[in-house]
Design a protein around this nucleic acid. Structure first.
Lengths: 195, 195
DNA sequence: GTCTATAAACCGATAGAC
DNA sequence: GTCTATCGGTTTATAGAC
């Protein structure tokens, strides 16, 4: 990939991180890179293509099968890290859904993928006797939705709360799961979180 | 308040509800009202002032003290209704935070208010023996954050999921609380939800 | 007070010279 | 590949008629 193109992507990601997708214009980006805005258009015909390219590059290779409490904890830490590193995306999640269907499709895809990963994880933890069985049909699905809605909007939520140091998503996630954990599961979780 | 001004607000709210804040221009609104866009500027110097006024008007008079399971259920139904009626606001929550500090201050204020209402409610339900005591310091606060992050971003989340009929927030909220409910509390809740 | 008309500044995007 | 000039669109702001 061309050097200028790389530089555009680097600067755009930085600026989106800081100010959000909508608040950054293509002229702003071109100015920061030190090229004309028309030249930027040569590389990216539309503003949304910059975001789509950034998104494609950050494509996760984290295809995991949660097979233990530790694996689920790692998954939460991965999500937390993902949100932190790609705040250019998560910080503008709602806006981006309206910008391009490519992106909104990607969002749904990521939701379904993470939802499936967590569902398998819940079932595995249940088999291991670490969490209780569903007390009604669909309980796991709803708790998983709570976990995913939290991670998806974690950045704007923390910004809204005005919390100076963003409390970790990892702890937030476990807080939702803890109440359905067995005594055995709780013991193992506390040991894990203390480390 | 002036008749024209009222009409502007009515039309703007309707259009924001349908298409989202960003997708509606002041010209669109003026055109729908049947006045010139410059005339609209006479009433609202900036686009954000329209939203700020709408927000100030929709100021909830629902200052409640949750004193029972039924009251908390009513509160969830109120939140659900609020989100539905004011989708012009909740559907663009993230964007609006970046638009004006008046709005972002209001968002934080609403979060803190709802957070306090729920916190008192949790403590009351605990006193009544319907939910368990905190199993660690801060557990209630985290569950409440889960409830509030869900309601705040309920609309974009449901749109992302692509669920045709939006599952109710009321059920989602109780799903998070159910795991910390006592046997007594669960019995009363199920009776309540069956009605 | 109420409204019209219009300018100013900015945006994403395009065309074409070099 | 890079640039300037420009289009049609937006929000914002002003000047002035009634």
């Amino acid at each position: 990939m061309n050097n200028t193109k790389k530089e555009i992507l680097r600067v755009a990601k930085k600026m989106f991180n800081e100010k959000g997708y909508n608040a950054v214009s293509v002229r702003d980006i071109a100015g920061e890179v030190g090229i004309g805005s028309g030249n930027l258009t040569y590389y990216f015909a539309k503003k949304e293509e910059i975001m789509e390219t950034l998104l494609a590059e950050s494509k996760s290779e984290y295809t995991v099968h949660i097979s233990s409490l530790e694996a689920m904890d790692e998954f939460f830490m991965y999500l937390q890290q993902d949100v932190k590193e790609n705040s250019f995306y998560y910080g503008s999640h709602t806006q981006l859904a309206q910008v391009s269907s490519v992106i909104s499709d990607k969002q749904r895809e990521m939701y379904e993928e993470n939802s499936n990963v967590l569902k398998e994880g819940f079932l595995e933890l249940c088999r291991e006797g670490l969490i209780y069985k569903e007390s009604y049909k669909g309980e796991y699905d709803r708790l998983i939705d709570s976990l995913l809605i939290s991670i998806t909007y974690w950045i704007p939520f923390c910004q809204m709360k005005g919390s100076i140091d963003v409390r970790s998503y990892r702890r937030q996630a476990w807080s939702v799961i803890l109440p359905i954990m067995t005594k055995d599961g709780k013991v193992r979780l506390f040991k894990l979180l203390k480390k």
